[in-house]
Design a protein around this nucleic acid. Structure first.
Lengths: 194, 194
DNA sequence: GATTCAAGCTGAGGCATCCTCAGGATGTCA
DNA sequence: TGACATCCTGAGGATGCCTCAGCTTGAATC
């Protein structure tokens, strides 16, 4: 809509930084417990801050989600680069996919936000999602070049599969988490026959 | 929680039936446009009815969703039975899976509700979901018996795969719908090698 | 047709949440 | 210490959820 997505930045003043950090910590906890649609007023209150302060630092819910998950996704991107340097491209891809599914389902509702951010510039998480897309695409390409993954699989399709797995994991209850098996079956479908 | 799920039933009095139908029609349209979390007050207003009347007929949002999707899911179950009588078990399973994905993603948010209903009695849609589970399981079993699908795939896993595909479809935009390809890749993973 | 009453309808109102904004407080820098 | 940009506050309008006390009406009975 805007073309210029808002990315929350750490404020300069000491009290501002304090509150920014407190809000972020409260948000992580709240998202973990109540999902991405946790009450923002609760988060503000947990952070010991008025609601207006929360909105000052994070003008939209999406910007707060972005800030709360940035570290994890940065790690994921960094790990992709490290894995790309390894010897076994298929193993690297699989390892990364497993990790990605876990990150995508850090809390309920996150996959949906990420899936939208992936193709919607003008979204706080878009930058990070693009980086992830590149990282995943590189690993995929390498595995394909090694003849270990079907050559007609596109990065977009890979992320659909990962998102699907993450969504299943999101829905899971402690006694029923089919996401690992889901990924296993998916891998069965995309790796080339021995 | 309750153990006794509320299933909306068509009321007896003429004005009751009229309103029930009007609310259902408005709900279908609203869900289609705004997803499963469409405003109930809007729906009531569109149906030309006070909000209290909506709640009289459909005490919970879940019960309204259930009523709005019952027909489609009934058809899906019926189709499973018809397909089971056909000659080619694998073809039957695939056809049904495609259809299921479409039904599961009738509107945004439905898959999530169905996925929860599947294993949570005390949910309006649970009955229909169980019937669907049985129908899908029968088709799966037949395809496995014919040696066309890996024998270690369970019905629960099948529904995870279907739900994942439906979720992807739910997220899709007109220019980007990867659900068909998703299903294709999944089938690659669960069918036995020629 | 009149009577009766269970079934049905209404919409105000309490509560939660979102988000804004005018006015006040305060950290920082010179 | 003064000046001011930055930051904070919380009341308040808007929306949506859901309930309930009081009223209306369809339909069964006489």
């Amino acid at each position: 809509m805007d073309g210029k997505p808002y990315i929350a930045q750490r404020p300069k003043r000491a009290d501002g930084r304090r509150n920014y950090d407190a809000i972020l910590a409260a948000a992580r906890k709240a998202f973990e417990g109540a999902g991405a649609d946790a009450s923002l007023e609760d988060i503000a209150s947990q952070a010991g801050v008025a609601i207006g302060t929360l909105y000052r630092h994070f003008p939209t819910r999406a910007s707060l989600v972005e800030a709360a998950t940035r570290d994890g996704l940065e790690n994921l991107v960094a790990h992709a680069e490290r894995l790309a340097a390894g010897p076994d491209p298929l193993d690297a891809l699989i390892t990364w996919m497993r990790e990605a599914v876990v990150h995508f389902s850090t809390f309920r509702g996150l996959v949906g936000i990420l899936a939208q951010s992936m193709y919607d510039e003008g979204t706080p998480s878009h930058t990070m999602c693009s980086a992830m897309h590149r990282g995943g695409a590189d690993l995929l390409r390498a595995a394909q070049a090694a003849g270990r993954v079907r050559p007609d699989l596109t990065p977009d399709e890979l992320f659909d599969l990962l998102s699907g797995a993450a969504w299943v994991r999101e829905q899971a209850t402690p006694d029923r988490d089919g996401s690992a098996r889901f990924l296993e079956l998916v891998l069965e479908g995309i790796t080339t026959r021995d």
